[in-house]
Amino acid sequence: MIILPEDLIQEILLRLPVRSLLRFKCVCKSWHSIVSNPQFAKFHFDLAAEPTNRLLLRFSQGSKAKSIDIEAPLHDESTSVVLNIPLPPLALNYRCWTRIAGSCRGFILLTDELLDFFFDFVIWNPSTGYHKRINNVPMYPDLCGFGYDSSNDDYVVVNMSPSHGLFLNGALHWLVVKSHDNTGVIVAFDVMEKKLTEISLPRDVAVASKSKFYRLRIMGGCVCICFKGYRTPMLELWMMKKYKVQSSWTKSFVRFTDHYHSFSTFTPICFTQNGEILGSDDAKTLRKLNDKGELLEHRTHGLETRRFDGLLHCGLYRESLLTLSGSN
């Protein structure tokens, strides 16, 4: 029997998905300590040998959140696909305004209103259950985003704009409308340099984007703008293929083939590995389409119905073992 030294064991473990690693903590004490080591968690995340993406769905009244594997069929109920994860302790026992306010590196930022404009924040890793509370913050919860500063290994909660900011390339992104000329623009906040920059929208979109049907998304590692008008059988998808390169905005259409979709307000959430589009068209229903717009499957989740903005309240996250280092 050949016994591998611990550094080689560690190299093998780095190439396993998060769920296997959690299971293998039980192998022996030394494996437990390798997998629990924050430095290992960081190497594991950065190597990204087996990245697995999940979607956390808005909460029911209970104390659990539902998390689904975006690659699996929507109706697959097996325990490896659908997880019912206990929420971290929040102040008000999971009242319906416990919200997902951001997502970054496997963490979900939750907010919970205490009193008028005083909030509890919880930075939570749904994969491991790790969480950290930030209590009694005076702020407006809609004005917030969650990002990561790689130079300091710091996580940053930013308080600024409607809807939660999307994190890409070291910056948080929001779609906003300039009040003086009513044109839309993407605002990017670099969390390392603490600097704001603007990314212009494609000209066709800039004026129209004040419509609330336009959505900002990070899909396929790119900044995207999506639009689906009511009673139109098409989804417009603008992708900025090269980050901050204006000429790289590329427009594509997904033409819905079934009648029903013409009347829905489908909004994409992400691409799966196979290039399918996962999205939602009301507060409860998830749909998967192929790139030709054909509906592959849909599923209505029996979740609480209170709408925030008419869309499914959810958070996309990549599973990680990360914890917050230090006390910031």
Partner: peptide, 12 residues
């Protein structure tokens, strides 16, 4: 330890 991760659907 098995109990610790049972909620996460980690099958043993």
């Amino acid at each position: 330890y098995r109990e610790e991760n049972a909620w996460a659907g980690v099958k043993f």
